[in-house]
Computed example of a mutant assay.
Amino acid sequence: MLAAFVSTPAPKDPLSVLEVGDRPEPEASEGWTTIQVKAASLNHHDLFSLRGVGLPAEKMPMILGCDAAGIDEDGNEVVVHAVISSADWRGDETLDPKRSLLSEVHQGTLAERVAVPRRNLLPKPADLSFAEAACLPTAWLTAYRMLFVRSGLRPGQTVLVQGASGGVATALIVLGRAAGYRMWVTGRSEEKRAAALVLGADQAFESGARLPERVDGVMETVGDATWSHSVKSLKPGGVIVTSGATTGFNPGAELNRIFFTQLSVVGSTMGTRSELESLIQLCSVTGVRPLIDVELPLSQAHEGFARMLEGRTAGKIVFTL
Rank of each mutant, 00 (worst) to 15 (best):
E77C: 13
V80N: 01
H81T: 12
I84K: 00
I84Q: 01
S85N: 05
S86E: 12
S86M: 04
A87F: 10
D88I: 07
R90F: 07
G91M: 05
L95T: 13
P97L: 10
P97R: 05
R99Y: 11
S100T: 15
S100N: 11
L101G: 05
L102A: 05
S103K: 00
H106K: 15
T109L: 07
L110R: 00
L110K: 00
A111S: 14
A111P: 03
E112V: 08
E112W: 08
E112R: 12
V114N: 04
V114S: 03
V114P: 00
P117D: 11
R118E: 15
R118H: 11
N120L: 09
P123L: 14
K124N: 12
A126D: 15
D127T: 15
D127C: 14
S129G: 10
E132R: 04
A133D: 09
C135N: 02
C135P: 00
C135A: 14
L136W: 02
L136G: 05
T138A: 14
T138I: 14
T138H: 11
A139F: 00
A139D: 04
L141G: 02
T142Q: 05
T142E: 08
L147H: 05
L147F: 07
L147R: 01
F148T: 14
F148C: 13
V149Q: 15
V149G: 10
G152V: 07
R154L: 15
R154M: 14
R154E: 15
G156S: 12
Q157G: 05
Q157R: 03
Q157P: 00
T158C: 10
V159F: 04
V159G: 02
L160A: 02
L160E: 07
V161T: 10
V161L: 03
G163S: 08
A164I: 00
A164S: 13
A164E: 06
G166D: 02
V168L: 03
V168M: 02
A169G: 15
T170G: 10
A171K: 01
A171M: 04
L172P: 00
L172Y: 02
I173C: 06
V174M: 09
L175H: 03
R177W: 06
R177N: 14
R177F: 06
A179D: 13
A179H: 13
G180T: 07
G180C: 07
G180E: 05
G180V: 09
R182A: 11
T186I: 10
T186G: 05
S189K: 06
S189Y: 09
E191L: 10
K192Y: 08
K192T: 13
K192Q: 12
R193N: 05
A194E: 13
A195Y: 02
A196D: 08
L197H: 06
V198H: 13
L199W: 01
